[in-house]
Amino acid sequence: MAQTRTTNRGGEARIGSGARVRGRIQGDGNLVVEGHVEGDVTLRGDLTIASGATVRGELVEAHSVSIAGLLEGDLTASGVVRLSSEARVRGTVRGMSVAMDDGARFSGRLECEFELPPELGGASRGETRARAAGRR
């Protein structure tokens, strides 16, 4: 039963668990993916990939990104990237900061800016690239 709704002002968007999108998604607002997305995603807002959801795209850009589902592709975040314990990620992850919970599975490249502590030969500012071998 569909009825008239005038809700969701402010650019909120959700791809429900029964939904599949094949194509390009762009937007200013936040996006929650509970279903399946195949294609590039470019958001000014935050991206949430819920548990059970899949996102496959060559380019995924958003502000902060939290992942509990499956992501395949190159992710660029201007904010925080958070991989929860159920997350499975394959590809390159670039973010201002990246948090990974115990149990998250990640295979690919992790690029984020941080300072190494001095005992690890740190003191050199700038981009440090860590290569994470994936546990599968």
């Binding site: 569909a2 709704r5 809700t7 969701n8 002002r9 402010g10 650019g11 909120e12 968007a13 959700r14 791809i15 429900g16 668990s17 029964g18 939904a19 599949r20 999108v21 094949r22 194509g23 390009r24 998604i25 762009q26 937007g27 200013d28 607002g29 936040n30 996006l31 509970e34 279903g35 294609g39 000014r44 807002g45």
Partner: peptide, 27 residues
């Protein structure tokens, strides 16, 4: 609430298929 909502600021170019309701406020 498993329905799909395409918010006002969102543009999707491609194909959307859903088993549930879809609300489009964007493009």
């Amino acid at each position: 609430m498993a329905s799909t909502v395409i918010g006002t600021g969102i543009t999707i170019e491609g194909e959307i298929t859903s088993d549930d309701d879809v609300v489009v406020a964007g493009t």
